[in-house]
Design a protein around this nucleic acid. Structure first.
Lengths: 245, 245
DNA sequence: GGCAATTAGATTGTCGGACAGTCCAACTAT
DNA sequence: ATAGTTGGACTGTCCGACAATCTAATTGCC
């Protein structure tokens, strides 16, 4: 028997709701729709696309999840996905992929020092204020023996923000989010609180002096400490990070 | 008149389709549904949730976009979001945030060397094969003066894969995707093709020898080259990266 | 006339029902 | 057994409808 000369691939017609979603996406990508613009109402969109309103709705749900369109009251407006929405998505994906502490830490280990280094370059008054306020609060919390976790999270968030790099912020926030369950399982024994505060202080000082290398370096040490805390608490760095509720 | 002691905040009932989506998400997060499991059919879900099938569909669209559930033929199965699906989402978000080449490059500058370093640790036979095949193809393409971009992209993808770190792969792929338009605008003048190939070769050699520091170091140089190419081509690294199609 | 209360529309969220197209599995004829 | 047929199960899409909510025009009041 003759070999077939050509195999045809499965003919697949994308469902209409997907076409609608893609079409809207394309309009945004081509800047025909810009963040802030309002979309037509559902019934009008349905008419334009020549499909039923239900179909349009399904398409819109697609985009809504990505954060590309958003409901402000009753209007549908094009918007820029927020870091945290993205962080949620990526974080969730990492969880189902059973990512280990070590994997996350390896990435954190390069991103955080980068953030600290960049922050040294273009720090604004306001950003510095917020960092110093964070330090003050951390000092206070340490004395009163309160939980340092939220303050530590905020600290790193602030540093990243000061780095003024969207890509970095998103990547970092997705990863930081996943450490939160790890934090909860009892990090920061009293002894290490001092170390944490000391590190934060040196980092801020270095950033203030615009000494990128020093800021970056101390951040690295700080992240190493973080890992040691996790190990000392008896957790396996190669096991998947625990899931939060 | 007495001041009201307490103001109540607007009671907001999340729409049913959102509840459905969240409920399904929760089931996955709590591992009651695991990747690979099939969901009931739409009509049955509708019955379980006590809502209309249309409502279930809208909820499912939400999850579908994240890649958490997937249509395999006609069945709805729970799945793990693929790297590329995530990369798409994040990449798109970065685009609408008008991220600059420099921002992306700064992050790439730490992620790629990390990938090269990690790849040196646990490289499998198969991964090495693929890397060497890529080198061979690059050599061939260079001689025939063909487009090196797809091969370069593949190279970095392979290195990242060999690093065996999900978080890194996702972050890297999201960012790499955004350079693609940059590539298209005419990178790689013939002269730099040689440099590219040479760098790739050294990196593979270093990985093969399990010399993480060397692999990492050469990767860094390679990424610096990449930036220079962009600048030499006359583009502004501080401008937002150009959008694809 | 200016401001407040009311009313009429417009729009979303949800529902029920309907139907064509497609896939699958059991069944039938060769 | 193999090929062909049939029926049912589901999805993708559509239609029409309605309550709840928001918006804007309208009306009534001072």
């Amino acid at each position: 028997m003759a070999e077939p000369k050509h195999k045809f691939s499965r003919v697949r017609r994308p469902p209409a709701y997907k076409i609608v979603a893609d079409e809207l996406l394309k309009a945004v990508m081509e800047r025909q729709l810009r963040p802030g613009d309002a979309l037509s109402v559902e019934s009008e969109l349905a008419e334009q696309f020549g499909v039923n309103r239900s179909t349009v709705r399904e398409g819109i749900r697609h985009l809504e999840q990505t954060g590309l369109v958003e409901r402000q009251g009753k209007r549908l407006v094009v918007s820029r996905p927020s870091y945290s929405a993205l962080g949620d998505q990526v974080g969730m994906a990492l969880l189902v992929h059973d990512v280990s502490f070590k994997e996350l830490w390896d990435v954190k280990m390069v991103l955080e020092p980068l953030a600290a280094g960049l922050a040294s370059e273009g720090l604004t008054e306001r950003q510095l204020d917020r960092l110093e306020r964070n330090l003050a609060e951390t000092r206070a919390a340490l004395e009163k023996n309160e939980n340092l976790v939220p303050l530590d999270l905020e600290f790193h968030e602030l540093v990243a923000e000061a780095a003024n790099n969207t890509a970095l912020s998103i990547a970092r926030s997705a990863i930081a989010r996943l450490f939160y369950p790890a934090y909860r399982v009892g990090m920061f024994p009293a002894s290490s609180g001092q170390r944490l505060l000391a590190a934060h202080e040196v980092i801020v000082a270095a950033i203030k002096e615009k000494d990128a290398a020093k800021a970056s370096d101390w951040m690295r040490k700080h992240i190493v400490d973080f890992r040691r805390g996790y190990e000392l608490a008896g957790y396996d760095v190669d096991a998947p990070v625990p899931w939060s509720d």
